[in-house]
């Protein structure tokens, strides 16, 4: 700022640009309503496009007045960040790449620049140059804000997909006539537990299963929520006429459950999936005999 004062201008270019934006808000919003970024998003009514443009101009004016031209975190942007995010996301969904969206944001600059130059025509060339530079910097920052919202949206998408993957990875396996099993792997938080319960109950019906084995060998932590989900699943399976067996409770987890104070007494448990299967088979009347090859051949 002191540099600018030294150059002898009464008003810093950023302030001048801020004043200009506030003064010309309507004209700029009108012009932007016809620019690709706004026109393609607000297809239903042009008024909405103008309204959206107005909000962005106001935000830019605030950022300029605060002399934070290069700061995407400037307070002024906060007001329109959501709106910009929705606009960009909408372009993204319509198939635009990030660089196409970036170009569309760039396309907002020329109409404003034109107005600015016209307004400042009476002023010195040097001042006009400084103001257009300030506006160009500001519009570059706007582009950065828009692109940041796209990146954030991308990260959220990846996270969602990761979670979906977790939820999908719950295959119910038919082990034997009337016996199904789900090997549970990873985190068993609410959302996923719900999916596990539903898929298991569905397959009990489909397979006419009398036994359902929930193997938790791959579940790293059994806290009270996980235990509650297990108990709910067992109770629901019972209502469907199937007996549920929880297998694969590792010794460290068994001890922890006891300290936690949770009573799994109503739940049938077996050390391993093999033990659980053997139990279910026996209940169905099948005999399990260890076959020891004795060199006498198959008969």
């Amino acid at each position: 700022m002191s540099e600018q004062e030294a150059e002898g201008h009464q008003v810093a270019p950023a302030q001048e640009v801020g004043d200009f934006l506030r003064l010309r808000r309507e004209q700029i919003a009108q012009r932007w309503a016809d620019a690709a970024l706004f026109r393609t998003v607000f297809t239903v009514s042009r008024d909405e496009a103008v309204e959206a443009g107005r909000a962005v101009v106001e935000a830019l004016a605030a950022v300029a007045a605060a002399e934070r031209l290069e700061d995407p975190e400037a307070d002024g942007f906060n007001v329109v960040r959501d709106q910009l995010a929705r606009t960009a996301a909408s372009r993204s969904r319509a198939g635009s790449t990030n660089s196409q969206i970036s170009t569309e944001v760039d396309a907002l600059r020329p109409p404003v620049l034109e107005l600015l130059v016209a307004d400042l025509s009476a002023r010195g060339e040097e001042h006009v140059r400084e103001c257009t530079t300030a506006l160009t910097v500001l519009m570059g920052t706007l582009r950065m804000v828009v692109l940041e919202t796209l990146l954030t949206a991308g990260q959220e998408l990846i996270e969602r997909q990761r979670l979906q993957l977790l939820e999908v990875a719950t295959p119910v396996i038919k082990l034997w006539e009337g016996i199904v099993a789900v090997p549970l792997i990873g985190t068993l938080d609410s959302a996923r537990s719900q999916v596990v319960m539903e898929t298991l109950l569905d397959s009990i019906v489909e397979q006419h299963a009398r036994f359902a084995i929930l193997d938790i060998t791959g579940v790293p932590t059994v806290d009270s929520l996980v235990a509650q989900h297990l108990m709910k699943t067992v109770a629901a399976a019972r209502l469907m006429g199937a007996e549920c067996i929880v297998s694969g409770i590792r010794p460290a987890i068994a001890q922890t459950i006891v300290h936690l104070g949770i009573d799994l007494g109503t739940v049938m448990t077996r050390a391993s999936l093999a033990d659980a299967l053997a139990y279910a088979l026996r209940q169905q009347g099948a005999d399990i005999v260890a076959h020891v090859p004795d060199g006498a051949g198959p008969r």
Partner: peptide, 9 residues
């Protein structure tokens, strides 16, 4: 292992 499991839980 048991101490880890308890603390994590």
């Amino acid at each position: 292992l048991v101490a880890q499991t308890k603390l994590v839980t």
